[in-house]
Simulated assay, not measured.
Amino acid sequence: MQFIDLKAQYEFAKQRIDQRIAAVLDHGQYIMGPEVSELEGQLARYVGVKHAITCANGTDALQLALMAMGVGPGDAVIVPTFTFFASAEAVAFVGATPVFADVDSRTFNLDGEKLAATIGKVQASSSLKLKAIMAVDLFGQPAAYESIQSIASAHNLLVIEDAAQGFGGERNGKRAGSFGDIATTSFFPAKPLGCYGDGGAVFTNNDDYAALIKSLRVHGKGSDKYDNVRIGMNSRLDTLQAAVLLEKLVLFPAELARRQHVAGLYSAELENNPVVVTPKCEGGVTSSWAQYTLQAKAVSRSTLQRSLQRQHIPTAVYYATCMHQQSAFTSATPPLSDLSVAESLAACCFSLPMHPYLADEEVERVIFTLQNTLL
């Protein structure tokens, strides 16, 4: 059993993907070839925004978003502490300061009440100028953008949606990537929509942001490549990756449906299991189930993982160390608020196999193993 089976996906779509790659090899436009603009158009239509601008990876997408918003030294951006390092790293990279906030224990996303409290503490006790909130759609579920946007508007803050794991998820009829002032995603191979290398994208309805990001991703280019009007970066999605993503996007709706099915099987059987706590989606929310993440309850996480490992069932632990506990941030950005929920999650969460090519009998074997752990 594979934790994420990329080989099975390739075998399913091999002929179409190979044809797309061969077409790129034939025309030879390996950087910013026609497949890149074709993909950007399809991504924008899928998400439901005016602009989708691809780039080299999801971390660059965050950095491009921050640069376009003018976030820099002296500014602060609120980031959930229970997430991947890149979310806060991008903030630090542009010279701003990440301020960490706690998360909800069932959705794993920013907690609205704690977000508001964190903003209050920054304003009361810090010389930093709050500029934005970066919400992360962790494990596939879009964050509570209604409350996040309301809080942001009350304090005149920008909102960035980090949809690296959320792409394909929905909230009240809107797709991940359409929330906030700017949204970003990653096409890292293990993501719900992944390429065969690195890749990312930025989404926005703001024409000015879109134009700026298109310039920033190519060295701050102006009218041509020798007219550099600003300091930018080199962050272009290569044409081969765009070709792969075009074919994977065709498969994506069916794969999302299969992810829903697998998650439904897990939740139906494990929801009342005494040894774990299952993830919960808020009303009106559909997760893309980038991961299916449990919390160990009656026994330790390591005990459950060993039990599964004995049956050759792989598991993974994501974010065993919160952002505010990372060596890069412990001295530079001391916590301004209580982060105990995230610390608890970091100590007990683990993820089960989750991908669209997981057979029902494999899911049942995982469930059976967990149900019999205490017997």
Rank of each mutant, 00 (worst) to 15 (best):
1 M>S: 13
4 I>A: 05
6 L>N: 12
7 K>N: 14
8 A>G: 14
13 A>R: 14
14 K>F: 12
16 R>V: 08
19 Q>M: 13
22 A>D: 15
27 H>D: 10
28 G>V: 06
28 G>M: 05
30 Y>R: 15
30 Y>V: 14
35 E>H: 07
36 V>I: 11
37 S>P: 03
38 E>M: 07
45 R>K: 15
49 V>N: 04
50 K>G: 09
54 T>D: 10
56 A>C: 12
60 D>H: 14
61 A>L: 06
63 Q>I: 14
63 Q>T: 15
63 Q>E: 13
66 L>I: 08
68 A>V: 11
73 P>Q: 09
86 A>C: 09
87 S>L: 07
92 A>L: 01
102 D>V: 04
102 D>P: 03
103 V>A: 05
110 L>K: 00
110 L>D: 03
110 L>G: 04
115 L>I: 05
117 A>Y: 02
118 T>A: 13
119 I>T: 00
122 V>R: 02
123 Q>L: 10
124 A>H: 04
128 L>A: 04
128 L>R: 01
130 L>F: 01
130 L>E: 00
134 M>I: 15
144 A>W: 09
146 E>H: 10
147 S>V: 14
147 S>P: 00
148 I>G: 06
149 Q>Y: 00
150 S>E: 13
153 S>Q: 15
156 N>Q: 10
166 G>K: 03
168 G>A: 03
172 N>A: 13
174 K>D: 09
176 A>L: 04
176 A>I: 04
181 D>K: 07
184 T>Y: 02
188 F>A: 11
191 K>R: 10
192 P>C: 05
192 P>W: 02
200 G>Y: 01
204 T>G: 11
208 D>K: 12
210 A>R: 00
210 A>K: 06
211 A>G: 15
213 I>F: 03
215 S>P: 11
219 H>E: 13
224 D>A: 02
232 G>V: 09
233 M>V: 07
234 N>R: 12
234 N>F: 09
239 T>K: 07
239 T>H: 02
245 L>P: 06
247 E>L: 08
251 L>P: 00
252 F>W: 04
256 L>W: 02
256 L>I: 15
258 R>E: 13
258 R>D: 08
262 V>D: 00
267 S>R: 15
268 A>E: 14
292 Y>W: 06
293 T>V: 05
293 T>Y: 00
297 K>T: 01
298 A>D: 08
299 V>R: 12
303 T>M: 13
307 S>Q: 09
308 L>T: 07
315 T>P: 10
318 Y>S: 10
336 L>Q: 08
336 L>I: 12
340 S>T: 08
340 S>K: 11
342 A>H: 08
348 C>T: 13
350 F>S: 04
353 P>H: 10
354 M>V: 12
359 A>I: 07
359 A>S: 15
362 E>Q: 15
363 V>C: 10
365 R>I: 03
365 R>Y: 01
369 T>G: 05
